[in-house]
Amino acid sequence: MNPRRKQRLFAVSSIGVLLVLSIGFMLYALQDSIDVFYTPTEIMQGKQKTGQKPVLGQRLRIGGLVVPGSVSRDEATLAVSFDLMDTGPKVTVQFNGSLPDLFREGQGIVATGILEKENLIVAHEVLAKHDEEYMPPELAEQLKGIKHVKPEEAGY
């Protein structure tokens, strides 16, 4: 390789290394702010690394699995309340509005709202998170024991 090419290659690669380092530090510093939601455990016990806990009245997002059997609906209105959990404690979410199609017990949910009590969130938006697994209904029934029901038949 001739010296000029070598020089250019060296310049390009050193810029590359510096860039990777600086972006790396930046993302490391922003680590906690980039998460789109808190998990229920993080709300109760604080972020794993920093121990930072959300304060009451804070607007935040929570993401967790809907605890089976915890969904209770108001007969007359759209109001609904359910518990979310990941690996530790549960947090209750109250919501008044229509739920996404994928909402069901055991499903991952991301809710945006205000932290009213330590373990209570009043949400104004509920989003469903789905996982990266795709399979036909028959296979799912066999493997996971989940029966696919159309949302209009599920009664949510």
């Binding site: 996404p100 199609d101 994928l102 938006e125 509920v126 469903a128 789905h130």
Partner: peptide
């Protein structure tokens, strides 16, 4: 929109 319930979210 139909699955999550939103067109857009500022996630990573």
């Amino acid at each position: 929109k139909p699955m999550w319930g939103t067109w857009w979210i500022w996630d990573a």
